[in-house]
Design a protein around this nucleic acid. Sequence first.
DNA 1: TTTT
DNA 2: TTTT
Lengths: 134, 134, 134, 134
Amino acid sequence: MVEINKVILVGRLAQDPEVRYTQSGKAVASFTLAVNRFGGQGQNTADFIPVVAWEKLAEICGNNLTKGQRVLVDGRLQIRSYEANDGQKRRVAEVVAQSIEFLERKQAAAGNSGEIDINSFGKDVFPEEEIPFS
Amino acid sequence: MVEINKVILVGRLAQDPEVRYTQSGKAVASFTLAVNRFGGQGQNTADFIPVVAWEKLAEICGNNLTKGQRVLVDGRLQIRSYEANDGQKRRVAEVVAQSIEFLERKQAAAGNSGEIDINSFGKDVFPEEEIPFS
Amino acid sequence: MVEINKVILVGRLAQDPEVRYTQSGKAVASFTLAVNRFGGQGQNTADFIPVVAWEKLAEICGNNLTKGQRVLVDGRLQIRSYEANDGQKRRVAEVVAQSIEFLERKQAAAGNSGEIDINSFGKDVFPEEEIPFS
Amino acid sequence: MVEINKVILVGRLAQDPEVRYTQSGKAVASFTLAVNRFGGQGQNTADFIPVVAWEKLAEICGNNLTKGQRVLVDGRLQIRSYEANDGQKRRVAEVVAQSIEFLERKQAAAGNSGEIDINSFGKDVFPEEEIPFS
DNA sequence: TTTT
DNA sequence: TTTT
């Protein structure tokens, strides 16, 4: 029984990521991704899409992403319900990131050498070695 | 400047599609897609994702889809704001379908012969002819 | 019984598209897409992927795409067998495009005004009108 | 500079995976995936697509997948050249898996209890805990 | 055989 | 609010 839920986004961080921790100590990063609508014109031509990342990926986001940076997010679309301040149940949609590629270097902060080792977090494999097919 | 927004879902219609018309006469179909979380257990193991389709695709949905049917939706994730009844601005996320594959035949309705011509709406091309490459 | 075959590529045309016609008169465009391996370094850091498009899409490719242009290809991966010159059966893989987004304007040719109407072929819908949800 | 190369396949293993090791000791699993062409009829209605997986994923494949099993493969399309027996250079396309979901339990082998712990290898996160948004 |  |  196949059910698929896959989202691929390329856009820019609309804000710095916020990293929080659950009671059990799991890191969660969240940020909004601004994705321009290709071909769309007029004033409101972007979708602002909430993205969350968990655990190791969350920490990588917190340490390496800043507002304005361009990323590729691969994840799934999740609908979560929560209780609003007025006691009403509301639903919020967010993309749960499974991997994130950093498509640009982080801005060098003042007093920073500008050298950043990690400017990409992917799971691609490009082994130079030959595959030992018979 | 590439910005990508792509969503691929496979799930079942949680309800029959509703087809409405804009003031200018464009058809809009909307339905909720139940997408089970693979590997997830417990009681709430599905995401219920709002999907909309426009124009020709909307009509095909209205005429050929019913609750429970399994489909593949290819589209983009859109965040739309609207004014709620209490005057507050709210945001709603929905997938705007660009194409839909019907992965099951429609239930034969009572009094229906059970024969349905269109049980698939795709844009795949499987030409039998040879490609005339030089 | 769901079977999925989906390919999403962003890269540049390694050559101008070639448009041919089948015996029955169907247009087929073919070109190679150079897709750089993100994060890969060294000399050979791109995959050169054969892409074909059929009928109306083929003609749009022939009329609007040139070498070096950046596109997004959405399609499926097809394995086709053919008989080689030496009488052997060989298999070739190619992506059969279902839609193509032009991510850049075509180079203005010499003697051309530089004005091109169609610089995008997509199936996105961005209706300004409100969805008439109840 | 965004370049994307993403392949999503759902199909059945056409054969048991073969696991080999590179000279440096990296595991590589390879198998052919039979993906039916939805909507296609006639005799040849499937694509037989070569898939490779590396390292930890390769070992999981070797230990948990068998011919006929249904999987979802998420990866990228790679074109690799090699020298054929006749001294000619040939090109082969294959999907390099980045993650694989096992959509069916492995056949219980004779003398096997039928209990298999790992019947899924994914990278989805479904935390039960609340996200600590402010 | 190849793109930037 | 929900599907199998």
